[in-house]
Design a protein around this nucleic acid. Structure first.
Length: 577
RNA sequence: GCGCCCUUAGCUCAGUUGGAUAGAGCAACGGUUUUCUAAACCGUGGGUCGGAGGUUCGAAUCCUUCAGGGCGCGCCA
């Protein structure tokens, strides 16, 4: 039950009636009418801007109009206690306590679906995220985008959409050749005691390649490792397999599991790239031309040449983009266009790509191609996750791949744990750079919002434990004839905002609103809990070691929402801390 | 030079398709524990929402412009 939608609908119905009787003029669209919880000082439960929204077209002052509308609204609704007008024209509604009793009954009886928007049309989504090169372990930089993508998918799933989580494997191109060569040199190191070359900057120096090499040597006894050329194809496949398995293991430690892995190499070998280029050619989105040296670089070394270009400038990009390299191989962009054609062919309603900040410049290009392939339907949404600034010993920690001093995802999980990593990475809008203070996150202190929320759940679990009741099973109550106090209604009001939180998360693809919401809910709960210190009536367990049904239900409702939210963001809710 | 993101309290940030006197946490100061978990709570101080214009009943939110910070601008992926 979404009480805001409920009241907006009620109000709209009233407006339509009034307009039929000629008492009110309505604009074409009523989208601007909203309902929300007013600031606490107004001492009411729900407020609407409807009078301000309609005042101009009706040539009446907003307060006068509010007065008229307020009377009609109240007359139609038995659950309203008082209704008042506030400048500059808000209508504030205060419910009778029975409204909140009905509310809690509804959310307890429908606990599995509380928060789900039942009026909205459900869609079929593809979320592509991580897609890191399978040439080594994931590091902290990948982590934020990985969690963002996972949770966007989760929240869409929670809201009853269909979602596929997908990983695009870049197993084609020069990087892959360099990677395979690096593995080969590590194999020679093992088999022929030759030192790994240190003077070649194209090679991957990481120690993890020693493991890859050892695994390949151990499981492929029949391979002849003397010559690279003879086994390069096989070795590439084996190396990529090693890389991808390591990444899957990394993701698994974050509780991230993709539904589908798509190989770039396969797209190329199945001629999907050729086909998509033909399609673009037919539709005149491709031509042979020259591109200029990139800005800000020494252009004396730049050799202009005639090459196949995609007209991304038609769609607002700064320049047209190369599809084919001088050796005839496809560029990364070309196969990515084919990949996106492949996505479009699978008939999703919406494609979502999660990208790191360093790839933001790529968005225009790839969305241009999707527009070209789908007649500009704007099906692709790209979300960028901004940089994570690592802080160690109160100083920014600079990672450098070449120096080998980068923090892997494994290090992170081992030190910080999955829950803290997920919660902290999600706690901020993805548009904003994130400070990730190692020492702070490790510390199990009150500074850490994760524990603050978990603690709320643990306190509720503790009450249930004392009463020898099971927090995880449903509670059946015969009569909901409770009367909640203002403190309790305050928390119920917060619970009533949960469906709104989910709606906004889904429509704006901004999952950081969930940790923010849970923190606010936990805060209200902790305040309420502490009231019990001075006032025994505010304690959940009474002197006879019993709990009243209203309090039991109250706790259950809060714990349901906390658990539901924590499930979406993939963070555990321990019952004891 | 161009593109994207950011600029809100000393610090880190929330702020719902434009709404009411702009909110949290940290830091500072003072208080709360014989009672359901003090990983908690209560109180005090702290603001030109980067600057300037504009749009309107109303702007932190939308538009224009300027300044500052970050990321990117390839026949790498």
């Amino acid at each position: 039950m979404n009480i805001f939608d409920l009241y907006i609908d009620k109000i709209k119905k009233i407006l339509l009636d009034l307009s039929k009787n000629g008492k009110l003029i309505l604009p074409d669209r009523l989208d601007g009418i909203n309902a929300e919880i007013p600031p606490i000082k107004f001492n009411s439960d729900i407020s609407t801007n409807v009078a301000m929204f309609l005042s101009k077209i009706n040539k009446k002052s907003a307060t006068d109009l509010a007065q008229i509308l307020a009377e009609v609204i109240k007359k139609n609704d038995k659950s309203i206690d008082t209704i008042s007008i506030a400048k500059p024209g808000f209508i504030n509604i205060k419910f009778k306590p029975i409204f909140w009793t009905n509310f809690i009954e509804d959310i307890i009886k429908n606990s599995k679906t509380f928060g789900v928007n039942k009026n909205e049309k459900k869609k079929n989504y593809l979320v592509e995220f991580v897609s890191a090169n399978p040439t080594g372990p994931l590091h902290v930089g990948h982590c934020r985008g990985a969690i963002l993508g996972d949770v966007i998918a989760n929240v869409l799933l929670f809201n009853k959409n269909k979602v596929i989580k997908e990983y695009y494997v870049n197993d084609y191109g020069t990087q892959v050749i360099n990677f395979t060569k690096s593995v080969y040199f590590r194999i020679r190191e093992i088999k022929f005691k030759e030192p790994f070359p240190t003077d070649n900057e194209d090679l991957y120096p990481g120690d993890y390649l020693i493991n890859f090499a050892q695994n390949i040597v151990n499981t492929n006894k029949k391979l002849d490792f003397k010559s690279f050329e003879n086994i390069s194809e096989e070795l590439t496949a084996l190396s990529i397999h090693e890389g991808l398995e390591l990444i899957k293991k990394n993701l698994n430690s974050l509780d991230i599991n993709h539904d589908n892995f798509v190989s770039e190499k396969k797209l190329v070998f199945n001629q999907e790239v050729d086909k998509v280029i033909d399609f673009l050619k037919k539709n005149k989105f491709v031509y042979k031309g020259k591109i200029k040296a990139p800005a800000g670089e020494d252009d004396t070394k730049w050799i202009e040449r005639e090459q196949l270009l995609f007209k991304s400038t038609d769609f607002g990009d700064d320049k047209d983009r190369a599809l084919q390299k001088s050796d005839g191989a496809w560029t990364y962009f070309a196969s990515d266009v084919a990949y996106h054609k492949n996505k479009l062919d699978r008939k999703f309603d919406c494609l979502i790509n999660i990208l790191g900040a360093d790839h933001a410049g790529y968005i225009k290009r790839i969305s241009s191609s999707v527009d070209a392939l789908s007649n500009s339907k704007g099906k692709l949404i790209c979300k960028v996750s901004q940089l994570v600034k690592l802080i160690k010993d109160k100083k920014p920690f600079k990672m450098s791949k070449r120096k080998g001093n980068y923090i892997t995802l494994d290090d992170l999980i081992n030190q910080v744990g999955k829950d803290a990593t997920r919660f902290i990475m999600l706690n901020r809008s993805s548009d904003v750079e994130l400070d990730f203070d190692f020492d702070n996150v490790i510390e199990k202190s009150k500074d850490n919002p994760l524990y603050y929320v978990q603690y709320c759940y643990a306190r509720i679990a503790s009450v249930f434990r004392h009463l020898e009741k099971d927090l995880n099973s449903d509670i059946k109550i015969n009569k909901y004839d409770f009367y909640y106090s203002e403190d309790e209604i305050n928390i119920l009001k917060k619970l009533s905002e949960w469906p709104k939180c989910i709606d906004v998360c889904c429509s704006k693809l901004e999952p950081h609103r969930i940790p923010t919401y849970l923190y606010e809910l936990a805060s209200l709960f902790h305040s309420y809990w502490n009231l019990g210190k001075d006032n025994p009536n505010k304690r959940f367990i009474n002197e006879q070691k019993k709990i009243t049904d209203d309090k039991l239900i109250f706790l259950k409702a809060i714990s349901n929402v906390i658990k539901s939210g924590m499930n979406i963001i993939g963070v555990s809710t321990p019952e004891k801390m």
